[in-house]
Design a protein around this nucleic acid. Sequence first.
DNA 1: GGTCGGAAGCATAAATTATTGACCACCGAT
DNA 2: ATCGGTGGTCAATAATTTATGCTTCCGACC
Lengths: 283, 283
Amino acid sequence: MSPLLKIRAERDSMSAIERRIADFILDEAHLLRDYSSQQLANALGISQSSVVKFSQKLGFKGYPDLKTSIGEAIARGDGGDGNGHAENPVRDDPHSALAESLWQSKSLAEQETRLINPHDRVDAIATAIGNAGRVFIIGLGEDGIPARAFALRLSLIDILTVHHFDAVLMTASIAAAEAGDVLLVFSEHGQQPALCQIGRQFHERHGIVVSVTRHTANPLRAIADLSVLVSAHDERAHVRPLLYASALHHLLDMLFVLLCEDREPRLERLHANLERIRHLLEP
Amino acid sequence: MSPLLKIRAERDSMSAIERRIADFILDEAHLLRDYSSQQLANALGISQSSVVKFSQKLGFKGYPDLKTSIGEAIARGDGGDGNGHAENPVRDDPHSALAESLWQSKSLAEQETRLINPHDRVDAIATAIGNAGRVFIIGLGEDGIPARAFALRLSLIDILTVHHFDAVLMTASIAAAEAGDVLLVFSEHGQQPALCQIGRQFHERHGIVVSVTRHTANPLRAIADLSVLVSAHDERAHVRPLLYASALHHLLDMLFVLLCEDREPRLERLHANLERIRHLLEP
DNA sequence: GGTCGGAAGCATAAATTATTGACCACCGAT
DNA sequence: ATCGGTGGTCAATAATTTATGCTTCCGACC
């Protein structure tokens, strides 16, 4: 039962001084937080013991118990009079505002991206990677960054990964590709002829081509067997790439977690690898 | 801001005993209500004064303040674990559930991270980078990825950036450093002697050293003039690095946006650069 | 008028909390 | 290896807060 309610209920059968205490608490509940029993007594011009006895009479263990109970009630929004101060988060700090709005934009991009990548497709991609003998990963320029990040993650769970940020080198590498191998091509706009070329070559060797692009119609995606799509928008040109990176990152993280949790041994290997790295760092 | 969040954020940079206290509070927050500082100390087998000092260090007035703050947070439903009974519409699809829980963890990490990087420090770092003649960026291994990503962003807004993922090459590069130049050193655990060494060298050349590390006490951070701190936790070892990357990424994105919006010309240059890249891609 | 009960205050005991100073471990520099 | 210096912990103790016992006062009732 709400302590404020209880006080109000008992109020009528209280002595004069007790009623003074009750009224003070009901009116200025928020002040109670930093009042000791002595301070409260002083504020009302009564003795401290009266405050304590008041608390006990109401069924609280003592004054601190009353105090914290009321504090919790307020926090819970149990304002008693119902109105309370509706919690408006009054963001006066520009930094936090920026950080939060940026984060919110990212959340939006993430949701959009999740929406346009059906689960079965994501699963199919995870399965393909999980079963692949080798995984080839390429991304040029800015696309090279998520490519590299994902390649590193995969190699930590003992998936044999070949990563390049150069079309020529990749051409050489995939000469050894076999059926079942997977090629991940990162390219935000999917326009680069060189990458399409590599995709076709990989196809000829019966590998599975997975494109990672923005959610547009583009040549690279047309070639791919499976595609990862990213949706991220913002009117500010300097923010758009941040959202793209974030949404893509999250999708890749999802894939990574799926791969980790799909098969037990992967996790063990990951731990072993992390342990090994840790030893390397603090010899 | 939620006190539980705050405790989690600071957890990494705590001593062993402080961490014991933090863990107890995070795990058994509901028990705290009827624990005095002495009882809490006994429960953990430590001294009462440690509990008080812990409270004060976290910015509370004293132990009672911490206690009531946490009590209120719990009452408010601010469970800290982020779960709360947020009205999630019973996601029956395991994929979406995974994606959302992962995203929620990221949000938490982001909030923690924001909390431990005061605005003025972030501003100071942005200013330093904005005014620098040259910005040097280094990160080894996994740390190289965000380093590279940030270097690329900076160069897009015409900040002269030198990026290496090799300590030797960096040593050579910074020989040319001048006063006012900035060195960004990425190292999750800040333990690598080679990087500390580079930091000291850079110092000798009157450059500004900015460390980017996890929120722990570490040698690299001790050397740095300014530091970027990241807080990210998860009991699953394969998820933790994802959260770290995400929180760090967001902080860097913040810096980037600050740099972009601080001075008009930067944005123009960014647009010009983007335009140039677009032309390069679709001739 | 006596006395009974309850309310309030004062003084004080008990408890809780905060501070101090001593000690120790650890780190970096000499 | 040794020497400050620093940071962290604890025991002792001071300060504050809370709880209780005792006394007084006042009105109700016998």
